[in-house]
Design a protein around this nucleic acid. Sequence first.
DNA 1: GAAACGTGGGA
DNA 2: TTCCCACGTTT
Length: 350
Amino acid sequence: MDFSKKIINWYKNNHRKLPWRKNKNPYYILVSEFMLQQTKVSQTIKYYSDFIQKFPNLEKLAQAEEKEVLKVWEGLGYYKRAINLHFFAKKLREKSIGFFPKKYKELIKYKGIGPYTGAAIASICFDEVVPAIDGNFYRLFSRYLGIYNNITSILTKKIFRTLILKMMDKKNPGIFNQAIMDLGATLCTPKKVKCFLCPIKIDCFSFKNGTIYELPVKNIIKKSIKNRFFYYIFISNNSKKFFIKKRLNKDIWKGLYEFPLIESKKRLTLLEIRDKIWKKYKIFSENIIYQVKHKITNQILFIQFLNCKMIQSIQIKKSLNNFFLISYKKICNYPFPNPIILFLKNKKMI
DNA sequence: GAAACGTGGGA
DNA sequence: TTCCCACGTTT
């Protein structure tokens, strides 16, 4: 039995039962594949059903506002994915209702659909013979074939693509792709491999040589970590409203909402914070009422929240003219970054 | 080609 | 606690 036959047989009996695998509806695969970019299956499952319930099809997604889409995405990270997915739905509706690109080469023209996602959709939904090469593929094939090239280099990626294309099952490319992913996710894992259950171990280079953990090879470039100090001002009044605005800069959390902010490269004393808040917003702030350390790849955010009583005056309105007031009841309509969610939970507002 | 973009889990 | 790793696309 050849490689792809063994893989497909194994898949028939051992595949994971995932919510988006109930049929080949391209919209379901599209949503799941966007969520799965840089995200584990277990985390995706928590969001997928809510997303489909809220936006059951492309048309409903296209009609939605961006902040509704981001609200369902809240906490999942890489928020640009949600914006790109929404943009994709709107773009398709411009062409004609019901249209969905079916070819790999068409799919990867859209923002947010790269070689992996394009191939996953084209193969699973439309039976195109293209490998959906994700981290599982690099791990599994480098071990199986004994490839010691650095998998982060462009040349290696091309080599993998060529080799895998030859080994693919030409009749069931979608099943083949999903089978490799499942095998990589459940048996041929980064740690604690389960070779004893593997259907292809007898031909596996690394299994035969007892060198499973040598592969895959990747060059890890250690990057310096940037510290950032965020001071959020929670300006609330008696009628249970507070100021927020949307983050627009080319920075983290684009599209999410936040309170008025003072950012600094260094830690500030309470006096310095109050001074900066006064200079920027013409507001007297009070105390630090919550703090949280938030880590992102290559960044550590030291976030403190200050409270502040709202006094009606023309000066305040001017200095906060980019901000708008929302009531506590409307919190559920706006997407916020995780640290702000933590703050709102801590203050029992959600 | 390198850096940016988030979160969760395990050692 | 802290560190390290896993996970695709864009610019």
